[in-house]
Amino acid sequence: MVAQMTVELATAEDTVDFGRRLGGALRAGDLVLLAGPLGAGKTTMTRGIAEGMQVSGRVSSPTFVLARVHPAGQRGVPLVHVDAYRLGGDLSQLDDLDLDTDLEESAVVVEWGEGLAERLSEDHLVVRLDRRGDEVRTVDLEPHGTWTARVTDLRLAG
C-alpha cells in the first residue's frame, strides 16, 4: 500500500523551501525521483535539496551534462543531480558516466527519472510536481520501501 501525500506550493521560493526540508532529511544511498512536465520546478526543487544537504556548487539544469556531482559539505553526503531527459531511457548507464563519486555514498536526485530509475533501488521517493494557476505548484509524494515510514517524519508541509 502506497501512502500519498499532497502539498501545495504557492511560489518558487516555497518550492525551494520544500526541497530544503527534504534535503535536510536525505542520507547516503537515498534515491529521489523528480517527475513532472517541463517547467514544473524540478531544478528549482533540487536547488532547495542541495541547500538542505549543505553541498557545494551551483545547481543548474543537468540536461546537457547528464549528471553533476555536488561535493559533500558538513553533513558528509554528496548530491548527484541526474537528468534522464537525454539519457534515452537507461539509467543503468549512470555507472558509465564515470561520476567522481560512489552512488551508494551519495544521495541521488533524478529529474525525468520516473519509470527508469526505480530499478536502481526499490527504496525510493517519487516527488511528482505539477503546474497549476500562474505560479502555484502541487507536489505529490509517493514513498516506496522504507520511505513509507520515513515520509511521515519529514514534516514537509512546514
Binding site: Y85, R86, L87, G88, G89, Q93, D96, L97, D98
Partner: peptide, 14 residues
C-alpha cells in the same frame, strides 16, 4: 548514433 538510441548514451559517446 545518439539519435538511433533516442538520447545520449555515455558509453556510446566514449
Amino acid at each position: 548514433q545518439h539519435a538511433r538510441f533516442g538520447g545520449v548514451v555515455p558509453e556510446v559517446a566514449s
